[in-house]
Amino acid sequence: MDFPVFIMIIFASSFVASFIQRVSGFGFGIFMMTILPLVMPSYGEATALSGLLALVNSMYICIRMWKQIPWKKLLPILITFIVVSFFAIRWVAGMDGRVLKHILGGILIFVSIYFFFISERIRVKPTMGVQLAMGTASGLMGGFFAMQGPPAVLYFIACTDSKEEYLAITQAFFFIGNSMMTLFRAGNGFVTRTVGLCWLCGIVAVFLGIWVGAMVFRRITLPSLRKVIYAYMAVSGLLAILA
């Protein structure tokens, strides 16, 4: 692939992922991991780049809403996530990238079906057991696939009392979680020079996506946007399995 085309793909995917995250509250990693494993030199580098860009995406809101973060609701699931993701990332280093892409395809299809047909019917109670279970699921999905959002979001929706609290706790989870996973991935050799170069190119697109997403948020129908995203995920998952 020509270098200019490669950089354009990184820029465009970073913009779209950031736009999705700003409008819907999550989905950055889900979208990025439909693109990056196809263009990055290795699967591990794809997860590292996705995590680094997602970190930047959530950092601004996390800092701005720091005083509104409900730490008692966040810490149990966050600590569980960090511990599990540490081991998941170490396992990724010894796994075949092609196999992981096929597994990722299955996960994308499952997540799209879940949010299309099941998520509105499921309500979880914010108990300690639920936090540990969702933290474990998020740690595995974050470590293996850089998409820790779905299990955590299910818990955050159930435990928060306002949209402001929901936004504060989700962005704090993504910011701190991705910061820790970046350190873990660096220790396993996934944060390479290529990842750094792509991050510098993608970070501009991330801020642009945040800006456009903020403007569009008040004008777009969120359910319609989500359906488009989930349909895209299903198609991308199928292509990953068949590739």
Rank of each mutant, 00 (worst) to 15 (best):
Gly94Ile: 06
Val216Ala: 15
Ala48Trp: 02
Phe26Pro: 02
Phe184Arg: 02
Thr80Ile: 02
Leu200Lys: 11
Val83Ala: 11
Phe3Ile: 09
Ala133Pro: 00
Met33Arg: 07
Met65Asn: 12
Gly106Tyr: 01
Ile107His: 03
Ile169His: 06
Phe3Cys: 04
Gln171Gly: 09
Ile30Lys: 07
Ser58Gly: 10
Pro70Asn: 01
Arg98Leu: 13
Leu242Thr: 07
Gln171Lys: 14
Ala133Thr: 09
Leu197Gly: 07
Ile241Asp: 09
Ala48Thr: 06
Ser112Cys: 05
Ile7Glu: 00
Thr34Ser: 13
Ile107Asn: 06
Tyr114Lys: 10
Met59Arg: 00
Gln171Val: 07
Ile122Gln: 07
Tyr155Thr: 01
Ile79Leu: 14
Ile122Thr: 11
Ala158Cys: 01
Met128Ala: 11
Ile63Trp: 10
Glu45Trp: 02
Ile157Asp: 11
Ile89His: 03
Phe115Lys: 04
Trp199Thr: 09
Gly142Phe: 03
Arg121Asp: 10
Lys67Asn: 12
Gly25Ile: 11
Lys125Asn: 12
Ala214Ser: 14
Met147Trp: 01
Ile241His: 13
Gln148His: 11
Phe86Asn: 07
Ala243Gln: 15
Ser24Trp: 01
Val216Thr: 12
Trp66Gly: 06
Ile30Asp: 08
Ile122Glu: 04
Tyr43Ser: 01
Phe6Leu: 10
Thr221Tyr: 14
Gly94Asn: 10
Pro4Gln: 10
Ile103Pro: 07
Leu36Ser: 01
Ser112Gly: 13
Leu100Lys: 07
Phe26Trp: 04
Val16Gln: 03
Leu208Pro: 07
Ala234Glu: 05
Thr170Tyr: 03
Phe116Cys: 09
Thr192Arg: 04
Arg185Asp: 04
Phe190Glu: 15
Ile35Lys: 10
Val206Gln: 05
Pro4Glu: 08
Trp71Pro: 08
Thr127Met: 06
Asp96Ile: 05
Trp91Pro: 04
Pro4Lys: 08
Val124Tyr: 04
Arg193Glu: 15
Ile7Trp: 02
Ala234Asp: 05
Ser24Ile: 11
Ala12Thr: 15
Cys198Asp: 03
Tyr60Lys: 12
Thr34Leu: 07
Phe174Val: 09
Met233Asp: 14
Phe11Val: 15
Ile77Gln: 08
Ile122Met: 14
Val111Gln: 04
Asp2Ala: 10
Val92Phe: 02
Val228His: 08
Leu140Pro: 02
Val195Thr: 09
Met59His: 07
Ile103Gln: 05
Ala214His: 14
Asp161Thr: 13
Leu104Met: 08
Ser42Glu: 11
Leu55Val: 00
Ile220Asn: 00
Trp66Leu: 15
Phe26Cys: 06
Tyr166Asn: 10
Ala48Met: 05
Lys163Glu: 15
Gly202Ile: 01
Met8Ser: 15
Val130Glu: 02
Ala168Arg: 06
Leu49Lys: 01
Pro126Val: 01
Ser18Asp: 11
Leu167Asn: 09
Gly209Arg: 00
Phe145Arg: 11
Gly27Arg: 14
Phe15Ser: 03
Ala205His: 08
Phe184Tyr: 14
Cys201Met: 12
Ala54Met: 02
Met233Phe: 15
Arg121Lys: 12
Lys67Gln: 11
